[in-house]
């Protein structure tokens, strides 16, 4: 049942990604060279809506959160390495698979590369366990917990930031 739910969720997600054109190499690179911010408009809208809905459901006790563990060195270094690869391949993991779905075959080679990268990471993972992954380790922590403030304050700031960035993109006409 969970597998069916996953497949259906993916179909809807893939449909939305394709309709917004964010699966395209041109859109992904376009954002990184500041010429077309479509992918960020999609992402920031998703974040704004999801943040409000998730925290509302959290307050009602309907859902549990699973923030990923914070290990600052690994998060930042991994993020930067991801960015370097992202600019080269022009798709992220989810969009690469979607791009294959709309016939963009260069993304298929990107997917093969990603499988290779995953296998490589599994090989070197033991080296990182006592080093990169344990440096500046703070566990599963959210910004409201870190600041010790009510989470709706941070939700408000986040939504305002997402809206402001999108307004800025529109003002630039990109």
């Amino acid at each position: 049942m969970l597998l069916v739910a996953g497949f259906v969720t993916g179909i809807i997600f893939g449909f939305l990604l394709q309709k917004a054109k964010v699966l395209r190499y041109d859109k992904q690179l376009g954002a990184l060279i500041f010429e077309d911010f479509t992918i960020f408009k999609f992402m920031f809208s998703a974040i704004a809506v999801a943040t409000v809905l998730l925290y509302a459901m959290y307050d009602l006790g309907w859902v549990q959160f699973h923030p990923k563990p914070t290990h600052l060195v690994a998060n930042l270094m991994g993020g930067l390495i991801f960015g370097v690869g992202w600019a080269l391949v022009g798709y992220c993991p989810g969009t690469s698979v979607g791009a294959v779905g709309e016939g963009r075959l260069d993304a298929f080679f990107g997917v093969l590369g990603m499988l290779m990268g995953a296998a490589l990471y599994a090989e070197v993972y033991p080296l990182f366990e006592g080093t990169l992954l344990s440096w500046l380790y703070f566990g599963k922590v959210t910004v409201p917990q870190l600041l010790g403030v009510n989470h709706w304050m941070v939700v408000g700031v986040m939504v305002a930031l997402m809206v402001a960035l999108c307004l800025w993109f529109e003002a630039m006409g990109k």
Binding site: K68, I81, F82, G85, L88, G117
Partner: peptide, 26 residues
């Protein structure tokens, strides 16, 4: 070739960071 190499670098980075633009980003 660039897509393949970029893909491997990207996923290596994603696993070190703990996620990608879906898992971390959204």
């Amino acid at each position: 070739l660039v897509a393949f190499v970029g893909g491997s670098v990207l996923l290596f980075g994603a696993r070190l960071a703990g996620g990608c633009p879906s898992g971390h980003g959204i």
